[in-house]
Write a protein that binds this DNA or RNA. Structure first.
Lengths: 161, 161
DNA sequence: GTGATTGCAAACTTTTTGCATCCGA
DNA sequence: TCGGATGCAAAAAGTTTGCAATCAC
């Protein structure tokens, strides 16, 4: 079940909230950049192209709302700012895409995504052992990307781990 | 291989850095609170008990140093501040303890730890498929803890997921 | 003695909040 | 019309930095 713009409007109305240009544009910008990991500032700059009078505070208030509506995910790549990604079932043709994790290169800062559903077993395990009910997860791997590794090897350095 | 205070002093000297009371105390406080997830402010308050003249900036500079020396880990529980945990092999009798993940309750904010080594297979998988060399990871689960779940059930509410 | 380290205060960055105005329903 | 939503500016919160004084070696 993928959420369309029409469904988003319905969801807003059902909650007694108003459909505004700002809200539609924030979600649209996130949808158009589903491969990026956008900060509030990134979203602000892009929405401003279509709607120059928007304020940064509105971006923050809107992503908060979208988080609560579970239409976007929040991720933190440990670079000092929170980032937002549109949900896998929101606004897209990506009906098959499931969870993905982030691979963060400590050398160049690049962030790769890695699709995977293997955590479901672990989640079941956690629920059985602790009674904690898992609703969502965030998994980051820190290390060195292929390119940085090759670059290091070319420089004749020994790869120390 | 567990790192003792003596080894920490050696590591500092080997890097041409000085052994100061402040550095020893920060690591000691982290070691004494390995079950907590300490913010810079938490560490500051505790070190101040033994060393009232310490400044918050020193805490930040020291944890940065300890991170680089891989004696502590940084975690982010999405509550607005970065947290620090002493490394599993640092200053402890916990030679068998391996990786652990964090279970964050969205209702009461409590953070539980869950020991597990199941991610190693996934890391191998990632290295094979992408060439990304994994050095560390951080895994958080968001959901509802046992107590909050029971409380909700007692109130007669239907548990919606 | 000398260079690394510290404490303090100021600067900086990201995010939140108060409030008058505006706008969707 | 009316209450929710917005833009702006100010405030808050967390972290970093410059610098003179201090301390470890």
């Amino acid at each position: 079940m993928s959420v369309s713009q029409e469904e988003f409007k319905e969801m807003l109305k059902k909650k007694g909230l108003k459909v505004t240009n700002q809200r539609l544009l924030v979600l649209e910008v996130l949808a158009e950049n589903r491969d990026r990991h956008m900060t509030a500032e990134d979203i602000y700059e892009l929405v401003k192209e279509d709607y120059p009078e928007i304020g940064l505070a509105t971006i923050y208030r809107t992503v908060q709302l979208l988080l609560e509506m579970q239409l976007v995910d929040r991720i933190n790549l440990d670079d000092g700012c929170v980032r937002y990604e549109i949900g896998e079932n929101t606004y897209g043709d990506t009906n098959g895409k499931h969870h993905h994790h982030h691979l963060i290169c400590r050398d160049c800062g690049k962030v790769l995504s890695f699709k995977d559903d293997l955590l479901e077993e672990l989640e079941r395990h956690i629920e059985e052992e602790t009674g904690f009910h898992v609703q969502n997860h965030e998994l980051k791997f820190f290390g060195q990307c292929k390119e940085c590794r090759e670059k290091q090897n070319q420089n004749g350095k020994h790869v120390e781990v």
